[in-house]
């Protein structure tokens, strides 16, 4: 099993930390992982993305241009990465602020209304956990308990009191994600 994933959105949405939690979750189930952020002009222009690979085998290239899954959290990233999903792959997006919805028929498309849901939960910071919940539900290769241990590993001790709030977000994401037919 090899999962090649890109998470792309605005800086501040928790894109990089979501990637880090996924990488730690992979480690928790003895898999190989790599996490490669965009650290250059993209980041400074407000958009952020990270390539995460989780695999049973040694990881070759940490730099990729085709992905099994793309998690897309703003319009710029939709424009850039919809076409980068491998045929038969998966696209997960939050529809908030998206004007041009995905159109590909050869991939599976899922929508998670994470921004709206986070606001409804009065917990805007849970946004990325809702998205992450949707992802782990759909892809299914990461065990829930490993994601929780991954979350604990990637959070500094002083933030461990936020774990219940994060867990609530994860669970909500698992519940509300829905497949879109094009």
């Amino acid at each position: 099993m090899t999962e090649e994933l890109i998470i792309a959105g605005f800086g501040g949405q928790g894109v990089l930390s979501m990637g880090k939690i996924l990488a730690y979750s992979g480690i928790m189930q003895d898999q190989e992982v790599s996490w490669m952020p965009a650290y250059g002009p993209e980041m400074r222009g407000g958009t952020a993305n990270v390539t995460v690979i989780v695999s049973d085998q040694e990881i070759s290239s940490p730099v990729l241009n085709r992905f099994d899954t793309a998690i897309i959290l703003n319009q710029q990233s939709m424009d850039k990465f919809e076409s980068a999903v491998k045929p038969g792959g998966t696209l997960i997006y939050d529809n908030n602020g998206i004007l041009n919805h995905p159109t590909r028929k050869d991939i599976k498309i899922y929508c998670v209304e994470a921004t709206d849901e986070a606001n409804r939960m009065k917990s805007p910071r849970s946004f990325n956990m809702i998205v992450l919940g949707a992802y782990i539900k759909i892809k299914g290769f990461l065990k829930y308990e490993n994601v929780i241990s991954g979350l604990k590993k990637s959070l500094p001790e002083r933030h461990h009191h936020t774990i219940p709030e994060n867990e609530a977000g994860l669970k909500r994401g698992m519940d509300i994600v829905k497949e879109i037919s094009i």
Partner: peptide
Amino acid sequence: VIGQMMEK
């Protein structure tokens, strides 16, 4: 790349 990426 090697400086900025995270791995085990």
